[in-house]
Design a protein around this nucleic acid. Structure first.
Lengths: 224, 224
DNA sequence: CTATCAACTTTCAGTGACTGTAAAGTTCGC
DNA sequence: GCGAACTTTACAGTCACTGAAAGTTGATAG
């Protein structure tokens, strides 16, 4: 759903194409059904039936029911790793990746008439569905690992040292901030302002992290 | 297992006592079995049988299989809330609660001969068991909510504003740091140094958060 | 064009976590 | 002791997810 349909170069057999189509069909219809009736009220067997496919096939494509909604959790990692390698700092890398994801979402929002409403429902679905939130956290956990490793490698320390860990955790928190901002603003603001509003939120959070939690202490986050 | 057996005042009917005993028996034997054979290899029905109790009874006490191991996830919240209310700052509150938990673990470690080895296996079990890690993250998520609310309330802003969110996420990361430090040091260091070593790690992480990610920038966390 | 091989799908039978319900057993206040 | 409130149990069921074997289909060599 959020996927931006990364067009693959033409050199692709019929087999591969069918697989991609099936995969897409599965996520799309599953998401649609979940949005309509709620995650729990839809059985995997129903999704399979709706797609004219056996239940086992669904599980050949997706490891869990949740992964039907959060298509390609590894995409973020695949983008993040090179960014970490090339950027001047982890913070820059994360902000770059986040900006990229934001752009992708924004262009998807602009590409369909009812996109805004669908995205709002999508965000609400995730928020209201514990297993989906758990899945989101799991993905975040993987990002933490990747970032911590990158920092540790650069600094030449073990990746389970306190510094890489805490920095990675804090930085991954920015994903949550961006998602929350997106969910909040997508409904109220005109599309033109959306990107700026979300970016502003992320930047405020990032500045707070970089400058230190004491930075904006008009109302006592750190000890006075 | 990690629970410190908070002795309840005597005014307690037979009913309550039996419930407490059963609950304790369940977590203890379950943890023991999980440590021996692995989380996945033990069925809930087996735990029930080992305790001379029906499977349904297990589920009357615990919502999930995972909660058999991570007894009382709400204890942290119950401790944290008043700490947040009374401490000078969220950072202080979190550090205080963490120190308290550390003390409790340390005294438990000192109370039994094989405690160290058991704790090491316990930490390894959690690390090696995805569902348990997920459960841990879920608990962390609840802590984030509590802290974000406290900060937001104090500052008079919505709790899903970027600042409360990111601060809460970063602070909750300290739990992970403390757990990691505990797991790392429990095996190698003499008990006397344990608390200091762990505290040092937590403090390093907290200082980094408070002073800003740029603080210790000998090797480029933030942009140069 | 066809035989063949490999990949993919389906069918099927099963595991195990978790839930509701109604009956049987316990504890408590009197 | 006795009835009310509460627990435990037995039972039947749902549903996510898995492995194995047999069937189907796309790719490929002859």
């Amino acid at each position: 759903m959020i996927t931006v349909d990364w067009t693959d170069p033409g050199g692709e057999g019929l087999r591969e194409r069918k697989k991609r189509q099936t995969r897409q069909l599965l996520t799309d219809t599953a998401t649609e059904m979940f949005l309509d009736r709620g995650f729990d009220a839809v059985r995997v067997a129903e999704v399979a039936a709706a797609c004219g496919v056996s239940e086992k096939t669904v599980y050949n494509y997706f490891p869990t029911k949740e992964s039907l909604v959060v298509d390609h959790p590894d995409t973020a990692i695949a983008t993040l790793r090179p960014a970490l390698a090339s950027a001047k700092s982890p913070v820059d890398a994360v902000l770059t990746v986040l900006a990229g994801e934001l752009r992708a979402v924004a262009s998807w929002l602009a590409s369909q008439p009812d996109a805004v409403e669908r995205f709002a429902r999508f965000a609400a679905l995730i928020d209201a569905t514990p297993p989906l939130r758990a899945y989101q956290r799991e993905m975040a956990g993987r990002l933490v690992g990747v970032i911590a490793e990158a920092i540790a490698a650069r600094a030449g320390v073990p990746s389970d040292d306190p510094e890489p860990q805490i920095v990675a955790i804090a930085l991954v928190g920015l994903w949550r901030v961006q998602f929350a901002a997106l969910a909040r603003y997508v409904d109220g603001r005109p599309a033109s302002e959306l990107v700026d509003a979300v970016t502003a939120d992320v930047r405020r959070a990032a500045d707070l992290l970089v400058g230190g939690l004491g930075g904006c202490d008009q109302l006592g986050i750190t000890r006075s």
